[in-house]
Measured scan of single mutants.
Amino acid sequence: LVRYRTISKIPQITLNFVDLKGDPFLASPTSDREIIAPKIKERTHNVTEKVTQVLSLGADVLPEYKLQAPRIHRWTILHYSPFKAVWDWLILLLVIYTAVFTPYSAAFLLKETEEGPPATECGYACQPLAVVDLIVDIMFIVDILINFRTTYVNANEEVVSHPGRIAVHYFKGWFLIDMVAAIPFDLLIFGSGSEELIGLLKTARLLRLVRVARKLDRYSEYGAAVLFLLMCTFALIAHWLACIWYAIGNMEQPHMDSRIGWLHNLGDQIGKPYNSSGLGGPSIKDKYVTALYFTFSSLTSVGFGNVSPNTNSEKIFSICVMLIGSLMYASIFGNVSAIIQRLYSGTARYHTQMLRVREFIRFHQIPNPLRQRLEEYFQHAWSYTNGIDMNAVLKGFPECLQADICLHLNRSLLQHCKPFRGATKGCLRALAMKFKTTHAPPGDTLVHAGDLLTALYFISRGSIEILRGDVVVAILGKNDIFGEPLNLYARPGKSNGDVRALTYCDLHKIHR
């Protein structure tokens, strides 16, 4: 019993810090008490220290592992850092350059016999395009090294910054494609005289377009951006097909006994025919423009016929181009109408809503002055909100995010209106959640004399007048207030005048 009563005193000691020596009952000389009392004092002292730490809000209350900052290894790049964003855009520009100039170089340097010394005699450094290609190869190699040090988000939505895990993730992902696209074939085969082989191998750079397509997928929600990307894709495919079309004609031209190829026909049409040795002929500019003209006309199913396939190889390629053109029509131009419709969806919704308003007016036989006010209010409210119901949009977000959005939407009023000066951010967040926005066209009466005042109004834009009878008592403008002081009276009061809008007004109100 003594032991039980001794232990039962522990909660009292913990909360009230009572010393055991003052209790005459606990001072009985028993061996059990002498053993338990020192333990009680020690526990009391420890609990006292913990309570003191909690009340003082000291940093040592938290466990040590929670006080440590997340460790980022040296030379690790955050995937959302500004440097990584700028670097990704730079790589994107280099990939676009590669997609345009690599097929052009591979096709127009394929057994090209233009006048001038061969590239091997001039030297590697004197070729501007080769120098640019070398810079692109170096940048792609540097990009691989950067990807080995860039964080990523795993399946659990955690940012991984450990170098080993980053390397394994990159090896399992895009490393092989990036490595093949970054191989400097110019340096590996330079001086061997195989410019045709170098041009063909350099087309491996186009593998990076797969990554670019995935990154550009984030802009699919913007109709104008999608339309622009589709047109660029169409032009890029036409450019690639033009390079292939020229390569076919250029390879067949020296081996044909009869002059029936499209390059021969082009030379005869523009007065620059090929001679018996295969030299001469149109310039590279004429060849490229004509090839691009043929691919565009074939892809769009126009086909004027002034550039036509004559050999079997050219006919087979033309059939493939027609098939590609039909697929592009289905996948690209078939979506253009939907994209344009999405661009004008706001206008369509406006006309639909206006039609419903006019049908309501016609069905209920609203008189002319009231009908005009109804239409003007709808037009003004639509121009202010673009038909978007803010309350319906915010309803799907958590309250903390709703408060931040409301604070942002009402920031101008909260910053410049005098009653809100000096208020804490928590108070402003709470008030912003209570605001209701209303609009009024010129001549609209917001409050009639004798109406119950259940709200306090803040003028965000425009001006109003307060009338008693036919006498203008006051004219209020931006950041002015009218209405009933909230919670100042037990019952809502009545208006002693009319409140009429002089201009288009936007008002925020808080109800009782």
Rank of each mutant, 00 (worst) to 15 (best):
E64W: 11
Y65V: 08
P70H: 15
R71H: 08
R71Q: 12
R74I: 03
P82A: 12
V86H: 01
V86K: 03
W89M: 03
L93R: 01
L94D: 05
V95H: 01
I96D: 01
I96Y: 01
Y97M: 01
V100G: 01
V100I: 10
F101R: 09
Y104V: 01
A106C: 01
E112V: 07
E112I: 07
E114V: 13
P117L: 12
A119P: 07
G123R: 15
P128D: 01
L129M: 11
V132H: 01
D133C: 01
D133R: 01
I138F: 08
V142C: 08
L145S: 01
I146W: 01
T150E: 01
E158Q: 12
V168M: 11
V168G: 10
K172V: 04
K172D: 01
W174H: 03
F175P: 01
I183V: 10
E195V: 14
L201M: 01
L201Y: 01
A204Q: 01
R205L: 01
L209E: 01
R214Q: 05
R214E: 06
D217L: 09
F228T: 12
L229T: 05
L236Q: 01
L241F: 05
A242Y: 01
I244W: 01
I248K: 01
N250S: 09
N250W: 06
E252I: 03
Q253C: 06
P254Y: 14
M256G: 14
D257H: 06
D257K: 13
R259D: 15
R259M: 03
H264M: 01
N265I: 15
G271C: 01
Y274I: 03
N275E: 04
S277F: 04
G278C: 01
G281Y: 03
S283Y: 01
I284W: 01
Y288D: 01
F296P: 01
L299P: 01
L299M: 08
L299H: 01
G303H: 03
G303W: 01
T311Q: 01
M322C: 06
L323D: 01
M328V: 09
S345K: 03
G346M: 05
Y350F: 06
L355W: 09
R358E: 03
Q372F: 11
E376I: 14
A381M: 08
W382S: 04
S383D: 15
V393A: 05
C400V: 06
I405P: 01
H408M: 03
L409K: 03
S412H: 13
S412G: 09
Q415M: 07
C417P: 03
F420N: 01
G422H: 11
C427K: 01
L428R: 10
A430G: 04
L431G: 02
K434Y: 04
F435H: 02
T445N: 04
L446N: 01
